[in-house]
């Protein structure tokens, strides 16, 4: 019995490992068909993330993924499919881009950054209010409404930045550039405090979901709304909280992008972190440590993909293929594992 518990506990990690191996194998096969040496390609892929530059770049890239993942860990646990991360990210980002010059004119650096972070968070959360209300009080499926708000936000922000929010002093459509001294303080070679916020957020959510009453209540809501109602858990309030928190974290990631990396909001900007974060949170089985590891790994791959494209001319989409394959293989592995275990038991 004890032994079974042990394999049960290791199961997600083994599924994950096999999913990574399987997706790389299929990827290698694809490269081989196209006449690219897979070993050479993977060498380039893995070398990119090594060395000081590689590590700092990976850490910078993983920051928004961590923040979005923290939110997803809450909302997916509550059984709510908020797939509108990209839109919530963009709304948070553009509000920060517009507000930054105004707030910077009146406040010193640190309070200004705190307020701007709040603006990003609240902006992202506000963008989710409509899908959240529709889901929680009207029972309208949130998958479609949140995806619709994604596209809405893409066009809305790109309209705003080309029209009303545009900085008239420069030619490309963008918000005013935030001076370097007013950006998020750096720790090490371009890596800034946002990374720490992201890591703390993921770990904080991890412990909140496991060691607090409120986390436990959210899990109950996610498992069975009926049970939650019967035990007197305020389902509507908790669902709303989970929904808005997750959207807020996406907005915070947007603020991080503007204040820590880009220094402005640009027209047609859509980094589309949502599905990547979604895939990694699911594959990490909502475990904080694994989420951090996978966020690092995915950013590492992204960087390697860019290096491959530069050196071998293989499009960066290669990494997207790996990501999709990994998610599918992970679900299949979970199934196989469960079946093999069940068969051995009976």
């Amino acid at each position: 019995m004890n032994e079974m518990g042990w394999t049960e506990r290791l199961r997600p990690y083994i599924s994950l490992m096999f999913a990574i191996i399987a997706s790389f194998t299929v990827g290698a096969f694809l490269l081989w068909i196209l006449g690219i040496n897979p070993l050479r390609a993977y060498q380039v892929l893995f070398e990119a993330g090594l060395g000081k530059l590689g590590i700092t770049q990976t850490l910078i890239k993983m920051t928004p993924l961590l923040m979005i993942s923290a939110g997803l860990m809450i909302v997916l646990s509550a059984g709510i499919w908020n797939l509108g991360e990209d839109g919530q990210f963009l709304i948070g980002a553009i509000l920060v881009g517009v507000a930054a010059p105004i707030i910077n004119a009146y406040l010193p650096k640190i309070p200004a950054l705190l307020i701007l972070g709040m603006i990003g968070f609240l902006g992202g959360a506000a963008w989710a209010i409509i899908p959240a209300v529709l889901r929680i009080w009207y029972g309208l499926n949130e998958i479609i409404t949140t995806i619709m708000t994604d596209y809405l936000a893409i066009y809305l922000t790109s309209w705003l930045v080309k029209g009303p929010f545009r900085d008239p002093s420069v030619i490309p459509p963008q918000t005013p550039v935030i001076p370097l001294v007013r950006r998020i303080p750096q720790i090490w070679g371009g890596v800034h405090i946002g990374l720490i916020i992201g890591v703390v957020a993921v770990l904080g959510v991890h412990f909140l979901m496991r060691n607090s009453t409120i986390g436990w209540k959210i899990l109950v809501v996610g498992k069975s709304i009926k049970t939650a109602v019967h035990t007197g858990i305020p389902v509507a309030r908790l669902s709303m909280m989970a929904f808005l928190l997750s959207a807020g974290f996406a907005g915070l990631a947007g603020a991080n992008g503007v204040l820590g990396v880009k220094g402005l909001f640009q027209g047609d900007w859509n980094p589309a972190y949502g599905f990547t974060a979604f895939a990694l949170v699911y594959m990490a089985r909502f475990k904080g440590g694994t989420v951090i590891f996978l966020a690092y790994f995915f950013s590492f791959l992204l960087l390697g993909g860019q290096m491959m494209s530069l050196r071998l001319g293989t499009p960066v989409f290669f990494v997207t293929i790996l990501e999709g394959l990994m998610l599918i293989f992970f679900v299949v592995n979970e199934y196989l594992f469960q079946h093999v275990l069940e068969r051995r038991r009976s």
Binding site: F278, F317, T320, G324, L325
Partner: peptide, 18 residues
């Protein structure tokens, strides 16, 4: 179905773009 569907879309976005 949701996870599989999303996985499929990610894969196809990657594959066609690539």
């Amino acid at each position: 179905q949701i996870i599989t569907g999303i996985g499929f879309t990610i894969l196809m976005v990657g594959l066609t773009g690539f």
